[in-house]
Simulated scan of single mutants.
Amino acid sequence: MLKGSEATLMPASVGLTFRFMTSAPVRVPVAARLATARRYLMCPPRFFTVEYSINPWMDPSRPVSTEGALAEWSALKETYELLGHKVETIEPQPGLPDMVFAANSGTVVDGLVLGARFRAPQRAAEADFYRTWFLDHGYRDVVMPEKTNEAEGDFTWTGDVLLAGTGFRTDPGAHAEAQEVLGVPVVSLRLVDPRYYHLDVALFVLTEAGPGTRAHIAYYPEAFSPGTQRLLRRLYPDAILATAEDAACLGLNAVSDGQNVVIPREATNLIAAVKAHGYTPHLVDITELRKSGGGPKCCTMELRG
């Protein structure tokens, strides 16, 4: 566990584990994983409900518990804090039930902020509340986009490149805009399954790239176009491949600090896989939040720099 804001080397088994990707086991060396302290922005779901449908997960006819969602969110926030991470919060606003999904409202790299422009009109007002939060908290390099982008919903920082999803929400032109604003290389990935309408429900980073090392990721191949699948195999040949069952419970909407992985409890195959690769899973309940198509990552914007 992290102490305060210091990064600590987390003990993990060093040896050999097995991945059953083929008929014969593949031997994979597992190194000790390093957790680094993170800073997150979250929004309590005090006004959470499902009163419209803008993705396949949302059904306004199903009962939803605001109290249950708040309990899930509180447990998630406490998990981060127990792991030594700093959590900032923004005040929720009435009439914006999806404001809890903070990841959709900003992408922060090296202290530079690219805001969001939502595709669905029901969420459009969220972007300015987050813009105001950044300005009130000392951020001066805040750019609001011209193109539609749903921030960390479709932008995933790997430590050396920004993986950028498109196909359902974020405009392809927003990828070039992100590169210009954030000053980092961008790799476009095409999503093809409407259930996985954002990149952050189809892929997450386990360990960021470092000097001489590439990022380690997990993803669900069938969420992506054939060409994107080939690209991901080329870029990340050692990735963990999630099953359909993992994806269907939003198991890939997970958050990793390089050693600890906060993950929906139903993603049993993925949990076993990340554990076999030397990570420590921390299971959370997202029963209510999932009714709006969100999970741990959707609730968590990372403030980098």
Rank of each mutant, 00 (worst) to 15 (best):
P172I: 14
E51F: 02
P63V: 08
L9H: 08
V186S: 06
R233M: 12
S225R: 04
A164M: 11
Q229L: 05
A218D: 06
N269Y: 14
A103W: 05
G153K: 05
D160H: 01
L135T: 03
L182V: 01
D59S: 04
E177H: 06
P92A: 12
I263A: 13
L232M: 15
Y279E: 01
E152M: 13
H137R: 04
V186A: 05
E88S: 13
G138I: 02
S23I: 02
A120H: 13
G159E: 09
A248Q: 02
T287L: 06
A176F: 08
F48M: 14
I217F: 05
A12D: 14
A209Q: 00
W73C: 06
G305H: 05
P281W: 04
A35E: 06
E150L: 02
D238M: 07
D160Q: 04
F155V: 08
I90H: 08
G159Y: 10
Q122V: 06
L83N: 02
R169H: 14
V100Y: 14
S256C: 10
A254Q: 02
E152H: 11
P94T: 03
G153D: 10
V64Y: 10
A174P: 00
E88G: 04
E150Y: 03
E150I: 04
E152P: 03
L16W: 13
N104H: 04
A35N: 03
S13E: 09
A215W: 03
M301D: 06
D171L: 03
W57V: 08
N253I: 01
G84L: 11
P121K: 12
I240N: 02
N253P: 00
T280V: 10
F129V: 10
G165Q: 03
E245T: 11
R234Q: 14
R33K: 15
L83H: 01
L41V: 12
E302K: 09
A273S: 12
G165Y: 01
Y220R: 00
P60I: 00
P145F: 10
V100F: 14
G305S: 07
L270A: 03
E146T: 13
G159S: 05
N253S: 01
T166H: 13
L283Y: 05
E150P: 00
G15V: 07
S61W: 01
E302C: 08
D171H: 07
T66G: 05
P185I: 03
A124Q: 11
D141H: 14
E177M: 06
V201A: 14
V87M: 10
A244F: 03
A242H: 02
V161D: 13
K275T: 11
L96G: 05
A7E: 13
F47T: 00
T79N: 09
A116S: 14
Y196Q: 06
L96M: 12
V274E: 00
A120K: 08
D160Y: 01
T107L: 08
F134W: 15
G278F: 02
A276T: 15
H216T: 07
G210H: 08
K297Y: 07
G294V: 01
I263W: 09
V30Y: 11
S65W: 03
A242P: 00
V113D: 12
P281T: 07
G84W: 09
A102C: 06
M144Y: 01
V161H: 15
D200N: 15
P45Y: 06
R304A: 09
R140K: 13
T243R: 04
T166I: 03
R46M: 06
L82Q: 14
T268K: 10
